[in-house]
């Protein structure tokens, strides 16, 4: 119970920080207002708060964020170049990707990362959360795509959020 309250406050403080960013002012009044609004919105979703986050490795998390922005830039450039090619030579398809991470927020994170990286877009996750279905622009070698995801993002996520 005490742990839940702790998490509530931590998330609420994060929301307060975001509020201060968005409103662009760090006065005491504004922070208090942000805290109150964050508490109210957290109360609305209190049942859907994620299960306990045991440990986070900040440096690994930063590495993950860095990798993400690099890949995002690369993927935008790749798609832009592909659009300009007169013959796009597409081999699109949806392949299944077996997940080794289990927690919901990790799967959500992985799916979002996959969507914003070159040539892949996550479409669906199976009901038992063991398979992620990924649409790829060039799907002639799903095995290579799977290897790339599992040694890239999935490994990084596991490192950033150890069990």
């Amino acid at each position: 119970m005490r742990f839940r309250a702790m998490r509530f406050i931590v998330v609420n403080l994060l929301l307060t920080l975001v509020w201060a960013f968005v409103t662009g002012s760090f006065t005491l009044h504004n922070l208090a207002l942000g805290f109150a609004i964050g508490a109210m919105s957290l109360l609305l979703v209190r049942d859907q708060l994620p299960a306990s986050l045991n440990r986070v490795r900040p440096i690994k998390l930063l590495l993950l964020v860095g990798l993400f922005f690099k890949e995002l830039m690369l993927s935008a450039i790749k798609v832009a170049v592909m659009v300009l090619r007169p013959n796009m030579r597409l081999r699109p398809g949806i392949f299944a990707y077996p997940l080794t991470i289990t927690r919901d927020f990790e799967i959500t994170l992985l799916a979002n990362l996959i969507t914003l990286t070159p040539g892949t877009l996550s479409v669906d996750v199976s009901d038992d959360r063991k398979m992620l279905y990924v649409h790829a622009l060039s799907c002639h070698d799903p095995a290579a795509e799977r290897r790339a995801i599992s040694s890239g993002f999935e490994r990084r996520i596991r490192e950033a959020f150890p069990l």
Binding site: L90, P92, G93, I94, A96, D124, H140
Partner: peptide
């Protein structure tokens, strides 16, 4: 449906 160019659909 996916486009006819598609090579696979495992979903």
């Amino acid at each position: 449906k996916l486009t006819n160019l598609s090579v696979t659909d495992q979903l």
